[in-house]
Simulated assay, not measured.
Amino acid sequence: MTEIKNLEPFTDILKRASERKGSEDFVLDMAGHTFNKDEIAQIPDSMWLAAFTKQIFQSGFVWRVVENKWAGFEEVFFNFDIEKMLMMPDEMWEAKCKDERIIRNGKKVMTIKDNAQMIFEIAAEHGSFGQFIANWPAQDVIGLWAYLKKHGSRLGGNTGPYALRRLGVDTFLISQDNEAYFRAYKHIDGGVSSKKSQKSIQDCFDVWQQKTGYSYQALSRVLSYSVGDNFVGVDTNGR
C-alpha cells in the first residue's frame, strides 16, 4: 500500500462529515450506490451516449433547462440508437442542429456523432461499451477519464466523470470542495487537471479505499460533506 505523507485518516473525515450533517448513518446513506461489473457490462450502448450527451449539454448550462428539453432530445435522436446516429448524412445532422425540440448548440450537437463513433468502435472490439468500462482497472480512475477525454468529444474536465457516475460507475470526483481539501492538506499545488495532481488525488483515494472498503463514490461524497459550506439539504449530484 502506498504511504502518503500527511494523509488524514478517513475515520477522521467521516467523523467530521457526520458532525456537520447529523449522523454517520445519514452521511453514508447519502454517499449513494454504485453498480458492480456485471451490472455495468449490461448497460446498453445507447444509454452511454445519452449520458454523455446530457452531461455535455448540462456543462456550463442550467441543468433544469436540459431536463425540460430531454424528451425532445430522445425524440430527435432516436433514443440515441448508435447505428442510427452513424447512418445519418451530414444534411440530417445540420437539420437536427436547428430543431426547436432540443437546445440548438451546433457544436454540442455534433459531439453526439463523434461520441457515437467512439462507442461503436469500442463496442466492436470489446463486445459492448459497457463491457469495456466494466473491465477497466478499478484503481485507474484517472486513466479512464483521460481515455474518454482523448477518444471522445467534450468529455474532459468533470464532464466524463459526471457521466460515468450518472450510470453507476464507481468514480470519485474532483469537486470544488474536494479540490480545496487536497490543496489545504498539501497533496496538490498545481493545476487540478495536471497528471501530477490527478495522480496524487488518485493515490489518496486508493489508500482510503483499501483501508475502509468504501467505494470511490462514497469516499468522494463523504470528503465533500466534511468541508465547504454546510448546507442543511445535501445535493449529491455534483459531489
Rank of each mutant, 00 (worst) to 15 (best):
R154P: 00
R165F: 05
L144D: 10
F132C: 08
S153F: 02
L164G: 11
L173Q: 12
P161R: 10
G152Q: 01
P161I: 12
T171P: 04
L164I: 08
L164T: 08
G143I: 00
F132A: 09
P161M: 09
A163E: 07
R154L: 13
G143D: 01
Y147G: 05
G160C: 05
I174T: 15
N135V: 01
D170L: 08
P161Q: 09
K149L: 09
L155R: 02
G160L: 07
G157R: 03
T171D: 03
R154I: 01
P137M: 08
R166F: 10
D140S: 04
I133L: 06
A146D: 14
K149H: 11
D140A: 01
P137E: 06
G152T: 04
A146K: 10
G152K: 01
A134R: 01
T159P: 03
A163W: 02
N135S: 14
G143N: 09
V169F: 15
G157W: 01
I133P: 06
K150T: 13
G143H: 04
S153L: 04
D170I: 05
W145Y: 15
G160N: 07
L155E: 10
S175L: 03
D140W: 00
A163G: 09
I174H: 01
A146M: 05
L173Y: 06
K149D: 11
S153V: 06
R154A: 11
T159E: 03
R165G: 15
L155F: 10
L155V: 07
R154N: 08
H151D: 05
I133H: 03
G152W: 02
R154H: 12
R165E: 12
L167K: 07
A134I: 11
G157D: 06
G152I: 03
Q176A: 14
F172K: 00
G156D: 06
K150S: 13
Y162I: 13
L144I: 11
F132D: 08
L144Q: 07
G143K: 03
S153H: 03
N158L: 13
P161F: 10
K150Y: 02
V169E: 00
T159V: 15
A163H: 07
I133E: 08
A146L: 05
I133K: 06
S175F: 04
N158C: 03
T159L: 05
L148N: 06
D140T: 01
F132S: 07
L164P: 03
